[in-house]
């Protein structure tokens, strides 16, 4: 696995270094609209290496969320293919974690038990639930303390703030050690300060699990801060019009946001966004 922990994530032989985990091959999407087919997404081609964190940004309605749903297999690509380890994704993958803008939690479970939900469903954890309960609780507590929720394990969702719920839902998305973490505008509903705090925590979580991260966002700073690579999508019919590698060292800090380098990335990406 490529280690994104160290300085630069550009192992030059990226293409030859090994199989990409995910490949998009001429992916498209159309929707019937007033009698004809409307093109939403057109020929998206890209590949994502193991351990890479990528973001998709673009104007609203350009099909960013659809990209995510194709990867998860919740709505497989209707045109072209998305492949995971060379296998066409045609049904929901089992090795993914998902977090949405709405951090849905089960109101009858406390935070700890909400975070542990995937362990009750995903193999091999579910078979080991009784035997390794203590170990699993420890795993969950570990994640919760990474996002500074260690003192809120016994609280119920309605006793948490929106930001806290989102942090818990990130822990839930990661506890079963998924290979792919899918994030659909996870911080869209949070205020600017909370959001920046969340970036740092998400980075910390992701650096522990070392999975592929795919982030959908319309916050360009968020994309730059978190990603190894940012893909800019055009408006409909959308395709990738610009991609850039973000060579900022990790772990990234909020101070870096003020650096020239950071702002250079930001403004270059900003110039490529159409309305």
């Amino acid at each position: 696995m490529v280690q994104p922990l160290v300085d630069s994530t550009t192992p030059e032989p990226a293409a030859s270094a090994g199989q990409p985990l995910l490949e998009f091959d001429q992916v498209g999407l159309e929707y019937p609209f007033e009698g004809s087919m409307r093109q939403i997404i057109q020929s998206v081609d890209l590949s994502i290496q193991p351990g890479e964190f990528v973001s998709f940004v673009g104007p609203s309605g350009c099909g960013k969320t659809s990209i995510l749903r194709m990867v998860s297999g919740l709505n497989p690509a209707p045109i072209g293919e998305v492949r995971c380890r060379g296998q066409r994704i045609s049904k929901p993958l089992k090795n993914v974690g998902i977090a949405f803008q709405n951090p849905v939690m089960l109101p009858w479970r406390n935070t700890l038990s909400n975070v542990m939900l995937p362990l009750e469903i995903v193999s091999p954890y579910k078979q080991e639930m009784h035997r390794k309960k203590a170990e699993f609780v420890h795993m969950a507590q570990d994640l919760l303390s990474t996002v500074r929720l260690q003192d809120f394990q016994k609280q119920y969702p309605w006793q948490l703030s929106g930001g806290m719920r989102q942090r818990a839902s990130l822990c839930r998305a990661l506890i079963h050690q998924p290979e792919i973490l899918l994030l659909d505008e996870p911080f869209g509903a949070l205020d600017a300060f909370t959001r920046e705090e969340m970036w740092v925590m998400l980075q910390a979580l992701w650096m522990r699990v070392k999975c592929v991260g795919i982030l959908i966002t319309h916050d360009l700073r968020e994309a730059v801060f978190l990603s190894d690579k940012v893909y800019v999508m055009s408006s409909r019919p959308s395709t990738i019009i610009y991609e850039t590698r973000i060579d900022l060292p990790r772990p990234r800090t909020l101070e870096m946001e003020l650096s020239d380098e950071f702002n250079h990335y930001f403004s270059t990406i900003r110039r490529h966004i159409q309305h």
Partner: peptide, 23 residues
């Protein structure tokens, strides 16, 4: 049940029975 919660469960590979039982 919130569509997001259904998606979370589907992406974990939960069976229909598990979905009923847990959520």
């Amino acid at each position: 049940v919130e569509p997001e919660m259904k998606d979370v469960l589907r992406s974990l590979g939960a069976s229909q029975l598990e979905t009923f039982q847990k959520v």
